[in-house]
Amino acid sequence: MPLIADKDREQLQKIFAENLTAPVKLVMFTQEFECDFCAETRQLVEELAATSDLVQAEVYDFVADKAVAESYGVDKIPAIAVVGERDYGVRFYGIPSGYEFSTLIEDIINVSRGESGLSEATVAAVADIHTPVHLQVFVTPT
């Protein structure tokens, strides 16, 4: 059974066709005995990849492909890295459902375009940051 309903898929195809300008990879990490929500997250990523030629799914095994996981800084699963022209450091841990699904769609578009869409004041402020910053946003399904 698909996770993305037919009418939502049609809408996504349209949104992606109108907004994506460059390829985006959804790099997903699961494992052979899939964890809670790993199977659903993998299915979601694969269904998203089917909605646009510019969205590609790459599925890795967290255990067997340990080196790949480390190269993306992935330390838990299910994980999705949203990667465009470069790796911007955008990650999802756990299934992006409800409100977070909208965030994932927004991220795919922003990463494809290489645009943050932030205000001029924010862009100027973060330009002064030259040390590593790690943001972890805790959410629950809505």
């Binding site: 841990y93 756990g94 943050s116 932030l118 959410v139």
Partner: peptide, 23 residues
Amino acid sequence: MAHRLAIESEHIRADMVEAMEFP
């Protein structure tokens, strides 16, 4: 918004973490 900040700055990385899955 955290993800937008990560896109804007090469020094920022941002994780969305589903709290129920990672208690």
